[in-house]
């Protein structure tokens, strides 16, 4: 992706955000709206400045993206977070670590089994036994 295209998109997105946010701030009391309004005005001003600069700025550079891999990582992370309340922390975490390692090329059976299990044991000892914290439980246990 071209850096100029990205900056252009960011500037337009921020201008829309500022317009919507400024209007939303109108619903607050005067005190509560003061800093948000100042912040939106500053962001809008800088976005316009960036847009103007993009027109005058010569040259451009490409930001390389491995879209498939990035989307796969984000998808796996999202699935993990969605699964935690359903299956609980332990099952979800073991599944996530296993799936992520496998998806990105780890094939050693011992590694695929020992790393998730070892991580779960470590978290259990530090967070549950030592710090008395309770990881999320599955919905059917709550």
């Amino acid at each position: 992706m071209k850096m100029k295209t990205a900056d252009l998109g960011v500037s337009i997105l921020l201008l829309i955000l500022c317009a919507a946010g400024y209007m939303e701030a109108g619903k607050f009391t005067e005190q509560a709206a003061l800093l948000p309004r100042i912040t939106f005005l500053c962001i809008a001003g800088l976005s316009v400045f960036q847009l103007v600069k993009l027109v005058w700025k010569p040259g451009d550079k490409t930001v390389p993206f491995q879209w498939k891999r990035v989307l796969a990582i984000i998808g796996l992370a999202a699935a993990y977070v969605i699964l935690i309340p359903v299956l609980g922390y332990w099952i979800s975490t073991i599944l996530f670590i296993f799936a992520a390692m496998f998806a990105f090329g780890v094939r050693g059976k011992a590694v695929l089994v020992c790393i998730p299990a070892g991580f779960a044991v470590f978290v259990y000892v530090v967070f549950v036994r030592v710090l008395s914290l309770s990881p999320p439980t599955p919905f059917f246990v709550q």
């Binding site: 990582i73 992370a77 993990y80 977070v81 935690i84 922390y89 975490t93 996530f96 670590i97 992520a100 390692m101 990105f104 090329g105 780890v106 590694v111 790393i115 991580f119 978290v123 967070f127 710090l131 914290l133 309770s134 990881p135 999320p136």
Partner: peptide, 21 residues
């Protein structure tokens, strides 16, 4: 890094959760 990155995700998750459950 194929092992490290999932561990960073999982560790950040429990670290983040543990602050206020």
């Amino acid at each position: 890094k194929e092992i490290l990155a999932p561990l960073i995700f999982a560790f950040s998750t429990i670290g983040c959760y543990s602050v206020r459950n």
